[in-house]
């Protein structure tokens, strides 16, 4: 099975080219990190994979689990097992996580022709996972992301990931705006979730996050392309001398 293959992908927004013949292959169970300076197209990659309609795919192919990802709309991609942890999770006032996430998980179960979760079993699942991530029941009562601190929002994203159980999780600059403690809690959540069936694409500007997550591969991105790939030592190199050598 081809898990994720991106082949010569070209993407633009409002006529401006962002991704330029972009290529990457991710196999089941692998953890990839993409690093790059501001404006290199990292976040665009994450949003194009999730199906954000602001971006225009000019050419190229994306195969996800043997299917043409670009043919699917946003929710179909999610139901297929793609999860994007947002850089800035949006506030949705008045909407509680319970009905939201229950509808979300059930849409996925339905799509996979599995029985949907009833209120009680969902509530149990939510509470269990929240507890494991140190999310208080008080926080579960609040509206989605509304009035949350940066750290709380990211923890909330991890909670959603743990419930939706995606095969491919994309983290879009999850470390931005987090202090060390919050970063540790978030990465612990990610690590707990790792298993041989699950793959990760971690997008980040700094090496710090990778100290906790230990990716299998590190790629350096520049001007909409991967310019160098390697292992964690690449990240250390960037930390030491920045992006100017790439």
């Amino acid at each position: 099975m081809i898990f994720l293959n991106i082949n010569n992908l070209n993407v633009s927004i409002e006529g401006k080219k962002i991704l330029n013949d972009f290529n990457i292959t991710i196999n089941e169970g692998e953890v990839h990190a993409i690093m790059g300076p501001n404006g290199c197209g990292k976040s665009t990659l994450a949003n194009v994979l999730a199906g954000n309609e602001d971006y225009e795919v000019n050419s190229g192919k994306v195969i996800f689990k043997d299917e043409n990802l670009l043919d699917l709309n946003i929710e179909e991609r999610a139901q297929k097992g793609l999860f994007l942890a947002f850089q800035y999770p949006v506030e949705i006032p008045g909407v509680n996580i319970t009905p939201f996430l229950q509808a979300s998980i059930n849409s996925k179960l339905k799509n996979h022709q599995k029985p949907e979760l009833d209120n009680l079993s969902f509530a149990k699942l939510l509470r269990k996972n929240a507890e494991e991530l140190g999310i208080s029941s008080d926080m579960l009562k609040r509206s989605i992301n509304t009035g949350f601190s940066g750290g709380e929002k990211k923890r909330y994203e991890i909670l959603q990931m743990s419930i939706l159980n995606p095969e491919l999780s994309i983290f879009d600059e999850t470390d931005s705006g987090l202090d060390v403690d919050a970063l540790r809690i978030v990465t612990e959540g990610i690590n707990k979730f790792k298993d041989p069936k699950k793959s990760f694409l971690i997008i980040t500007h700094y090496q710090k996050l990778l100290d906790y997550i230990h990716p299998d591969y590190v790629h350096v991105m520049r001007d909409g392309q991967i310019v160098k790939s390697g292992d964690i030592s690449l990240a250390t190199e960037i930390e030491a001398s920045g992006y100017k050598n790439f």
């Binding site: 946003i74 929710e75 947002f86 949006v90 949705i92 939201f100 849409s107």
Partner: peptide, 26 residues
């Protein structure tokens, strides 16, 4: 952005609108 967020979590467009409007009226 709210619609995008909900749909990224697998909700259909219609479900997402209904959810957001209900939240708006909460």
């Amino acid at each position: 952005d709210q619609l995008y967020y909900c749909r990224q979590r697998g909700l259909s467009h219609e479900e997402a609108v209904s959810l957001i409007v209900n939240g708006f009226c909460k």
